[in-house]
Amino acid sequence: MIHNFNSGPSILPKQVFEQASQAVLNFNNSGLSILEIGHRTPQFEAVLEEARSLVKELMQLDDDHEVLFLHGGATTQFMQIPMNLLNDNQIASYTDTGTWGSKAIKEAKLFGHVEIAGSSKDTNYTTIPHQLNVSPTAAYLHITTNETIAGTQWHNIPYDAGVPLVADMSSDIFSRVLDFNRFGLIYAGAQKNMGAAGVNLVVVNQQLLGKVNRNIPSILDYRNHIREKSMINTPPVFAIYVAMLTLRWLKAEGGVSEMEKRNAKKANHFYDTLDSLPLFRGPVAKADRSLMNAVFVIDDAATEKEFLDQAKSEGFYGIKGHRSVGGFRASMYNALSYESVEALTQFMQQFAASKG
């Protein structure tokens, strides 16, 4: 049996694969593939509208918040957000909690002044900063809610920073209940918790837009995408379709609140096992551990390699840590079953026992 712990692109529900594969051959009995239908046809417009409606329902969004499906992934948002929200003479507050937060900071500096409201760099990104210094005149505060590489997660969202809150939720979107209406802008690459690679979800409070004094290229102006309902140009049709199927599955399974319960159960079981085995070490502070991406290490290179080799032969895929940090990473997204986590922990216990 295969157990998919890949960090992204990552595991999706089996029924989504089955429905998507059927649509590649014959979309809704049209005789055409989802890969070849026109994006301005009623068939695809219905897909896009259902996807948008499901996001609004699952996140319980108010009328001020608009849902967009855009190209470019979360990385494009690193520059598109300050381009739309930050004037040259303004301050933006950012938190530096790891690789993705650092990349967002680098791009924002091209458009205005960036102040670091909080950083965990001094702990080698093994913690989340709990004391923030946010300028009251900042255009917004940016956080990365879950750092996939560092394995940290914001469990206490800084809703009350006094400025609009912008969040990269690429790796924990739809994984837990949050007050999504208290965010000014949310963005998330689909390829971890809500679909296949190729599309990026943006949820934006329209009240924040139209306040910068720069000329914004048409394709990068959120207002144009809202006006054209995410079809200012040809959208990533197949990726949006897979996202819609995944959102359907999520709703049928009980919605975000049910995902939160399942994810807590998986993560608690994994971390309880990790903490019980001296062979393995979890570098992240317990209070800041990610429920999505559990990172851990073995403090011996030869034993670490042996563990990886045996894990692969046993059908555990994607547990090698990111190349920048090494070690291991078990990504436990919505579609990953508790049984897969249980299988991994049993393997860890057996391996540890074999080492005495």
Rank of each mutant, 00 (worst) to 15 (best):
Arg176Gly: 05
Phe180Val: 14
Ala20Glu: 05
Glu228Lys: 13
Ile173Ser: 08
Asn181Pro: 00
Gln207Met: 02
Ala352Phe: 00
Ser30Pro: 11
Ser354Tyr: 00
Glu115Thr: 15
Val16Cys: 02
Ile81Gln: 06
His3Asp: 05
Val67Asp: 08
Ser324Val: 15
Ile226Gly: 06
Arg262Ser: 13
Tyr333Pro: 01
Gln22Cys: 01
Gly73Tyr: 00
Glu306Gln: 15
Lys106Tyr: 11
Val134Lys: 03
Thr76Arg: 13
Trp154Cys: 07
Glu115His: 12
Gly254Ser: 14
Arg52Pro: 01
Arg262Ala: 14
Leu68Gln: 12
Met169Thr: 11
Leu279Gln: 06
Asn193Trp: 03
Ala46Gln: 14
Phe296Ser: 02
Arg214His: 07
His322Ile: 08
Lys121Met: 09
Ala252Gln: 15
Ala330Gly: 05
Gly38Leu: 10
Glu36Tyr: 10
Gln90Tyr: 02
Gly118Val: 10
Ser171Ile: 08
Glu253Val: 07
Thr144Phe: 01
Ser331Tyr: 03
Asn181Trp: 05
Lys251Arg: 15
Gln346Val: 02
Asp179Lys: 04
Val24Leu: 12
Tyr94Trp: 10
Gly151Trp: 07
Ala196His: 04
Val242Trp: 06
Leu208His: 02
Met231Pro: 01
Leu291Gly: 09
Glu107Asn: 11
Ser276Cys: 07
Phe347Gln: 07
Leu12Thr: 01
Asn156Ser: 14
Gly326Ser: 12
Glu342Pro: 00
Thr246Gly: 01
Gln43Pro: 02
His269Met: 12
Arg223Ile: 04
Ala285Leu: 11
Gly210Val: 00
Pro9Thr: 09
Asn4His: 08
Ile319Thr: 05
Asn263Phe: 00
Asn293His: 15
Val325Ala: 07
Ala92Met: 07
Gly327Trp: 09
Pro164Lys: 11
Ser331Leu: 03
Glu115Ser: 14
Val177Leu: 13
Pro158Gly: 12
Val166Asp: 04
Gly255Val: 13
Phe174Val: 08
